[in-house]
Design a protein around this nucleic acid. Sequence first.
DNA 1: AACCCACCCAACCGCCTTGGA
DNA 2: GTCCAAGGCGGTTGGGTGGGT
Length: 523
Amino acid sequence: MGRAPCCDKVGLKKGNWTLEEDQKLTAYINEHGHGSWRALPKKAGLLRCGKSCRLRWTNYLRPDIKRGEFSASEEQKIIQLHALLGNKWSAIASHLPRRTDNEIKNYWNTHLKKRLIKMGIDPVTHKPQCSTLVSANNYRSSLVPASNASAGNLSAVNHMAQWESVRLETEARLAREAEMRAKGTWRPSSSVHYLTQQSRSPDVHDLSSKRTFASVANGSTGTGIQMQLNAASNGVFGELDFGKLRADISFMASCLVKNDNLTTFQQRMCSPYIAMSETELSNSLIKWEKTSQSNAGMAWSDSLKLKSSNNMNIAQGRDSSSCSSPSQASEHGSPTSTLSSLDLVSKQKPNYTDPSSQKVRRLCWHDNKPSNISTPLSAFEQAQSPPSADVILAAWYGAAGKGHSREGSPSPVPCLEEIMQCETLNDTSEGSLLIGSKSSDLLCDLELVSEGMSSSHHHHTSVDVDGGDDGHDICEISYSTLLAEDDYECEWTNILEEDVEAVSAALDDAEANEQLSFGCSMN
DNA sequence: AACCCACCCAACCGCCTTGGA
DNA sequence: GTCCAAGGCGGTTGGGTGGGT
């Protein structure tokens, strides 16, 4: 038995809509809203089925839809999104404001698909159908800004797609979680691994007193990052299994080097501001790796229990990010740079959601920059874009390798924080930092909720991991600014109580069973 | 002018999902 | 848990259109 029709179609009109019908439908919806689509045609005096009315409205008559030619950037976006999502037209449409899924679908089928085929690109896989290098390059340049295109290769596109996919999934996840939190139904992952009580530093505040906490560290074996954030009342950060972190970053970097994916990495990280060549960066990282072995035993065999001394007096609403220079940051209480460390240069961020209250933080080498990483400081001082991959990698390495780099800070955690916050450099109020790794079980679903750097904004940072098709896992640190402060406060409260309970219990269990250990080996 | 053909895209079809009873 | 209505979604259709012969 076939499916029953959506409505009784006897006597109903089909085919193209007339102007009169459009006017009737528009007038009715403007006055009454659409309500039940099934009932609408009768009420509106139309001899159409409800479904037909709905489609006509959503795809054509709705006032908030944009019609007409697609811009180059829209085309580029459609191709990118199609590479990630396939024929998920509604999902694609959700990233193209005011465009309907139907319109995008049609445009794809009639224009873009053919264009790709002409270029020798399989429109399904987005990979070259044959070795038509010129066409493939054209394809790449249609996806990658010109400033980047020269440095990349086609694999960059695929990786970008994977990364973008992760980002989209993370966005969706965060949205889901936010919704759950708003409903008070959110719970941390059941497979949470926490640090043992013993591993916590005395200077880390007791969890139960934390103002800010929302951490899910989905523990697994191997090379992942395990973090626990015991957010102090005056800021963020607590403990981190830096042995694993370092091992993972090290592994990641070697994979990147081995697999010739640094270009991809650079592109995704920093676009036009790539100060080092791929070879230069590879060599630097390898060299650094060798030279760092000597102190690795000490620096990485211990679980570093950390409290950020770079917590920027958040409780007082101050932080170094609101300073216009490192020296000012220092005056505001942030520690000064000592070793070959990172420091922050804050600059006013253009086009920010709230320019008056937001500052841009930029990572740069302040002094004693590692000699084997030739990052020209001026390039970053002048740049109006996120720092390049070498700086970020160097930041991780610098942080990891030196153990710590700041006076008064026993740990590199501040550097991690800086890396996260560096994402505020993005042109929008949200962004992400992505790190690839070849470990198949790279873990980590960490979420940090902290009070924002300014009094009027809260920042939401998370780390997520997902697997790429090519065997690489991708760790994403995403960042967003939540502007709906009231909602956020509500969410915040909900999280706090639940998490304190959950984490306390987890800590107790861990302590009792000695399930968790830190100071993982480096291999 | 008439015909053919390829192309475009609005609209349709049918399956799937969701949410309420 | 089941049923069902409503809406969402993606694949496909077919009428309109324009260019070529």
